[in-house]
Amino acid sequence: MKAIYQNFEEAVKGVQDGAVIMVGGFGLVGIPENLILALEQSGVKDLTVISNNCGVDDWGLGRLLKNKQIKKMVGSYVGENKEFERQVLAGELEVELTPQGTLAEKIRAGGAGIPAFFTPAGVGTPIAEGKEVRTFNGKEYVLEEALTADFSFIRALKGDRAGNLIYNKTARNFNPMIAAAGRITVAEVEEVVEIGDIDPDTVHTPGIYVQGVIQGKQEKRIERVTTR
């Protein structure tokens, strides 16, 4: 049985200043909205945040940014956020940009006990500077190291009391790998269900990766409403 938190404050209580956290989501899709708000409320600072993006100015990780709680950001695309630009130019925020596939694999590797791997992405670019490059079958690859975190915060559609999770559509994105790469993983779910309610064949993230579950209501803001 996993911890089923009753409030978000309690779900983020263990996070201390200087912690390394991973946060699921792509853009604003599949982000643990309420866990992020609780981190904002907690006032925890000097965080290293590993997440594909950094939210928008007033939502998602942008809230922690605005509140100056992030010391370092590791992601693949941070262009949706003006405050981000301001803090980087002012030298207040450290950024490590990583190709998206490399980021996904670094996190996957971290959760899977693989310390590093070779990938072609970034060879011959500033990304490969200072890293080992090796040739396999006539093609160059760069050595990339795995990532893990003190805490992982993710979002799922459903979670049961064993921690098994199911995601919805493209809200899955980085969440499953992030679940496995955190020492403590808390899943914000749209619905907590009883054990046995999730068909084992449909589980996306097995409960072994999840330490706590909390039910919440998300706003699910849309960045670019595009209709035909």
Partner: peptide, 11 residues
């Protein structure tokens, strides 16, 4: 100029 990131292009 401000660097926004490479996203998935390098992969």
């Amino acid at each position: 100029k401000m660097i926004k990131g490479m996203g998935g292009a390098m992969d």
